[in-house]
Simulated scan of single mutants.
Amino acid sequence: MSKPVYRRILLKVSGEGLMGDADYGIDPAVSRRLAREIGEVRELGVEVALVVGGGNIFRGAGLAAAGMDRVTADHMGMLATVMNALALQDALEHAGVFTRVMSAIKINQVCEDYIRRRAVRHLEKKRVVIFAAGTGNPFFTTDSAASLRAVEVDADIMIKATKVDGVYSADPAHDAGASRYRRLTYDQVLDQRLSVMDATAIVLCRDQGLPIQVFDMTRPGALMDLVLGADVGTIVERG
């Protein structure tokens, strides 16, 4: 088997990605498959960190739009990410992968507090680390949290798992002429307002020179292909 091209990765998984074909919650088949694929990547010696969203349970911005106080709504969204992180931890441990959940808000009875040096040590010990509760602050998305954690733990790349095989010029579900970008710069993403991640996350990655790769998590083996350097999805980097 080929050697991986990355030493340490951060994988961002949306809450919606865990739903499968359901309308709410977590599809155990999806979490088991994802855990198995992460385990296979880990067996290559790649250190893996994850950030998971909470949109399959609660989405703070959506609750706020419906009239709820934004700070309260975002705190509920953070707790939803902890629930998803615990579900992924369970799936990973059933797959034989040692895993730690670290939360940006204190919830010590179910997971560890996020401490950067401890997180790096877990990774060095070949444990998968799942970062939950976003940044611990309202008004920041889990995309921003993923960018921040990737920079903090010195990941080689941030990988965003979606249901589409990269970034397109238009919505491929509604425009048959939409084409996939193989490579973009951070400024192209910002200037064209492409749906990669929110602007705060893109700017942080740009300023720190952290590449972003967007890929289709629903295709079995795509994560392994990406880690081995295959032309998968869309990469966003400096020009």
Rank of each mutant, 00 (worst) to 15 (best):
V189N: 05
A146T: 06
L92Q: 03
Y6W: 06
V189L: 03
D23A: 13
N84V: 08
E37W: 07
I105K: 01
E47V: 02
Q109M: 08
M217F: 10
E112T: 07
L226D: 00
L11Q: 04
N108D: 14
A65F: 08
E40R: 15
E93T: 11
L123I: 08
A150T: 13
L44A: 08
T185P: 11
D154G: 08
E237N: 09
F131L: 15
G45W: 11
R219Q: 14
D143A: 07
A61Q: 07
S195D: 08
E16R: 04
S147G: 14
C205M: 04
V30K: 06
E152P: 02
V236A: 04
R118L: 12
M83T: 10
P4I: 07
G55S: 12
T162E: 01
A119P: 00
A61S: 13
R219T: 15
G221I: 08
L11R: 02
G77I: 06
A222Y: 00
P4L: 11
S179R: 14
D143V: 04
E152R: 05
Q208C: 09
A35F: 09
D21F: 09
G20S: 12
M1R: 12
K106Q: 09
L79K: 03
A199K: 11
K3P: 01
A222L: 01
D207I: 02
S179T: 14
Q188E: 15
E152I: 10
D191A: 14
R127L: 07
T72S: 15
D165I: 11
C205A: 11
N84C: 14
E40Y: 06
M68C: 11
D90F: 08
I202G: 01
D154Q: 14
G25L: 08
V13R: 00
Q192N: 12
A145Y: 01
Q192K: 12
R121I: 07
K163E: 07
E124A: 10
S2V: 11
E124N: 15
Y24F: 15
A29P: 03
H122V: 04
V167G: 04
A29Y: 08
R42E: 11
G53Y: 06
R180T: 13
I9P: 00
E112N: 10
D69N: 15
G77H: 04
S169F: 08
S144R: 01
A80W: 02
A170V: 03
T72N: 07
S144N: 08
A95L: 02
A29H: 12
D198W: 10
G177Q: 10
V227K: 04
D198L: 09
R70V: 09
V5R: 14
R59P: 01
A133Q: 02
A201H: 02
V97E: 00
G134P: 01
H94T: 10
R36H: 12
I105W: 01
